[in-house]
Design a protein around this nucleic acid. Structure first.
Lengths: 218, 218, 218, 218
DNA sequence: AATGAATGAGTATTCATTCAT
DNA sequence: GATGAATGAATACTCATTCAT
């Protein structure tokens, strides 16, 4: 179940004596801030302000900016993993399952742009928060197993070719979807085609579905 | 051995009275700095130090950190465009041409990791430098035309299906290759497979070549 | 005598955990600094040092150099307005009241040279702080009403001529007194008469009192 | 004869091999810059740019920013002294002569606002440039002698009272006129009356003429 | 005379973090 | 748990001045 990352900005008395709510509010503010401005660009002051919390509380609950970033990243991973777990591909024929998976990737990124920035930023910083995060490392993506299982079914049915590596396929699909959103702005500027248009996205969706399904044929 | 009263020349700035060299040296330093630490993380002081130049010269030649970043970005684009222009796909049959193109993408990114960071960072900052850069916008990628031409030949030969959009294919290929390097660190950490290994890359290369070529079949 | 391992407290900042005192101390330091060196010449560093405060506290309490200058200016205006309000001219006959007013002007400027510099500097900068200061604009000078009332009484008594505009008379008196101090240094240098001497001031005082009172005769 | 202080900003080739013109151009640029932004606010770069001259030439011709300021100040003094010398008060009856003198003061300042800023700034800086300037100190104001002579004639005619000190009268008049322009902006803001209006100035002119002439009556 | 290149010491402002209550 | 006050080290950028040609 994904939680909203937008801090409650309504004018209400700040959280008093409600540690759970305070901590959650800071985390939500941090996710919004880091998603907008990145690790280096994000400001602890700004996070405290967004959370309507005292700045010192940020340190009280999270220790440092870096640890707060790690917590924000873990929350982002946790959110997407939750949704991924809800994907019930086993009920679908292999080709539909694969299509469903691509749609999920595109839709999730389209609706969670903040995850794109977090992921890009984390990699830009050497993935050091993920490496230090048991939570992030242990919550392996369910997608990998879903892909593997779907590939197996497709192979058995004779509609997918043999020997496709699930992780490599995962990377391909993630790459095709992620790149569209992550680098859409420079591409729109350079190629003069507005990729932020819904029709452009729909067309691209069809393209990668077709490419992938055809690409998996025996 | 006589002791000289001349000041230690080793400690002297490298470029005296050589504006071309000074400016080039600053730009090179900026590219390295920004590639390593990003726009927000990069420090003007550090760039000056790397360039063995007086800090004020950075402003003398480039005006501001932002304009310097733009110059660095333009240089990165210029570099890759130069190499792209050297790609002679017309001499190859369509399938080989497509394979060559994928190899080029992978190889370039493997050898120019700094371009990955620059691109990711620029998009994270809303592509504002690219939008303000005539140079970046006008130097449209030659790849697009190469892909279009290759697709046309493949269609005529009956080995590629009709109606594949060159830009969408470009994005797919760029996505699959870019993502592997850009997000390799988090994926290595999470999936427990070291994607930085040459064998891993070689295998992935085969995967996307196969996926793409199969995906383009009629 | 035992040697203490406690750090030297003499070097510690004066105000610990005393926000009122800290803020007041910074403001006082700012007034001194700006009075001595002007808005452009005044240094935030120097103000912090004078106030024995951390430089960041200047920004914590006042936001920016400009806002600090505005606060300093407002304090200067507030000071003179306070004293002006204590002037009880109504108890004096019109001529004595006018004389008292001139004396007040001269004495105040003689004792508050910093106000001269602040005023000159503010005008040199287009009066932009005053224009943005509700405090400064709303605290209209009580002198104006005092002058008006004194003029009215004098007119009724037949010792002042009719129709003298209070604001214009205010400007005349302010001009004659202000200029003496504000431009005394260049005049002393050029005319070779030391206007900083008390006897010179006393003589000039008699001059403007005589000129003004005679000038107001019917 | 007053020279314009506005540098020639028309797009023409910069002064080449014309030392007189170059130096004059720099001086004019300096006068404009310092008049607008003061000694501390004025920038050598900006002066060079205004003069369309190389920055180093500023130093070549004037030595330092301070000496350039001194030269600018001397030029300002020289300009006003020139005009003052053209005042032919001897031809007028004493009262008309005094009126003429007040008009001159007001008109000059109204048309040479830059002189106001220079004078205020110089005093704010302790008049150190004037003190070091033989030119400024030696060119005593002709006004002083004109006032003295006018007073003598008025006394003899019995229309001015005896014993008025010429320098003190000079300061009074200078004060009343200077203050109106120098501090007009703060007063306009605070008193809510727009002193920059021509009618306001005309009315004030009548006021100080009346005050002064009445003030000088026996 | 004239020019562009280069320098070092500043200058306002910011930021993550800690202290004291 | 919560808050405002305080700190020191940066951080981008500026400025008067000098160097080399």
């Amino acid at each position: 179940m994904s939680t909203s990352i937008e801090p409650n900005t309504a004018k209400r008395p700040r959280n008093r004596r409600n540690p759970e709510a305070t901590k959650a509010s800071i985390l939500a503010a941090a996710r919004a801030e880091f998603a907008e401005r990145g690790l280096d660009g994000g400001r602890v002051d700004s996070i405290a302000r967004r959370a309507r919390a005292n700045k010192q509380l940020v340190y009280y609950y999270f220790g440092s900016k870096d640890e707060l970033y790690k917590a924000a990243l873990e929350a982002s991973y946790s959110d997407i993993r939750s949704l991924e777990r809800e994907l019930d591909l086993a009920a679908l024929p292999p080709r539909e399952a694969m299509e469903r998976l691509i749609d999920f990737s595109l839709d999730y990124l389209a609706q969670h742009r903040e995850f794109i920035r977090m992921l890009a930023d984390e990699n830009a910083h050497g993935a050091r928060h993920v490496r230090n995060s048991d939570a992030a490392r242990q919550t392996n993506s369910p997608l990998l197993e879903l892909i593997a299982e779907t590939l197996r079914r497709g192979e058995k049915d004779g509609i997918f070719r043999m020997g496709v590596d699930p992780l490599e396929l995962y990377i391909s699909i993630a790459g095709m979807t992620f790149f569209y959103f992550a680098n859409g702005l420079t591409m729109s500027a350079i190629f003069g085609r507005d990729l932020t248009q819904p029709t452009a996205l729909a067309s691209y969706r069809d393209h990668i579905v077709a490419l992938t399904l055809a690409g998996l044929r025996p």
